[in-house]
């Protein structure tokens, strides 16, 4: 039996209802259940969460940092998506 490295998981914690799960770090575990148990023991010793997600790191699809500018470019010139683009005359309320 080889001492193969356990797969890497990313850990996400929801601090309380109403908030999203946020990335907290990573850990190695042999399987999904162990990943949950380890996430609890490693990342919530101070009652940091009410819910945990663990995801195998190799399942995450990420945007390419080298292509960041080109990838996000389409939104840059659509300034009319921002409310500040619009001039509202004085005297108009609740807009």
């Amino acid at each position: 039996m080889t001492d193969r490295e356990w797969p890497l998981y990313e850990v996400f914690i929801r601090t309380r209802g109403g908030l999203s799960h946020r990335h907290a770090g990573s850990l190695h575990a042999a399987d999904d259940q162990m990943a949950l148990d380890h996430a609890r023991d490693t990342y919530t010793r101070r009652s940091e969460g009410v819910s945990l997600w663990v995801v195998r790191s190799d399942r995450i699809v990420a945007s390419d940092p080298a292509e960041t500018a080109a990838f996000f470019e389409p939104a840059e010139d659509k300034i009319y998506r921002h409310p500040t683009f619009y001039e509202i005359p004085d005297g108009v309320e609740n807009l």
Partner: peptide, 13 residues
């Protein structure tokens, strides 16, 4: 412990 965990994970998979 590491070997047992691996064996169990492989068996379940």
């Amino acid at each position: 412990v590491r070997e047992a965990a691996r064996a169990y994970a492989d068996k379940k998979a």
